[in-house]
Each structure stands twice: as structure tokens, then as C-alpha cells.
Amino acid sequence: MDPTSTLLTGAGYWNPLAWLLGLLVAFIIAWLIYSMGEKGYKPGTAQAEPFISGNKEPEMKGEVHVRAGNLYWGYLEALRGYYDRLVPLHSGNLHDYILWYLGITALFLFLVVIFP
């Protein structure tokens, strides 16, 4: 019951506490680099404004937010062939659900009882 014990996973090992120690060191290095940055800036000037590709910050804040429907458009477009087949299977029709269940049972019966 050693709290620092390492989890052996056959081929490898995993010790979260050692990993956290590494993470802490990484954070300290990051903080050191960060603390070497420029200290002062002038509030109220362009220095303090967000940089949105040189455009003005929009008045309506909601316009800035990228909504969920726009994310992963490229991924979905690239896999369109896969999704066009997969999504219609989820038809919402109770008969389809039952048929899938009965079909899988029949398939397993074939594979386990008859096939070998």
C-alpha cells in the first residue's frame, strides 16, 4: 500500500506522481521564460486591445464565438462517404432496433453453434 507505487503494465510502467513532478518542472521553466518578458505596457492604448487579425473588436460579443456547428466541418466533409452510410442507420425506428438485435443474436448463433 505504498502511495507512490508504480503501476506496471506488462511492457511499461506508469507513475503519476513522477509525471506530476515532471509537469511541475516544466511549469517552472515556462514561468521563468514568461517572467523574462516585457514588464510594462500602457493601458488605454492599442497595446491593451485584443489583436484580431488587425480588425476592430466587434460590438456584439456573440459574433466572435465559433459555435459548435461550425467546428470539425473539414473532418466531416472528408469522411462524408462514411457518415452518409453510418448516420441513416440510426433511424429512430423501433423495428430497426429490434431487427438489429435479433439479427446479431442470429449471427452469433451461427458463429458459435453452427460454424465450428
Binding site: K61, G62, V64, H65, V66, R67, A68, L71, Y72
Partner: peptide
């Protein structure tokens, strides 16, 4: 995606 679309962005 879920984290971004629920929690990120300016307060609506």
C-alpha cells in the same frame, strides 16, 4: 469541441 462551444468565448 464541447468544451470550446460551452465554456469558451466571450460571455454571451
Amino acid at each position: 469541441k464541447v468544451f470550446h462551444s460551452i465554456f469558451m468565448g466571450p460571455a454571451l
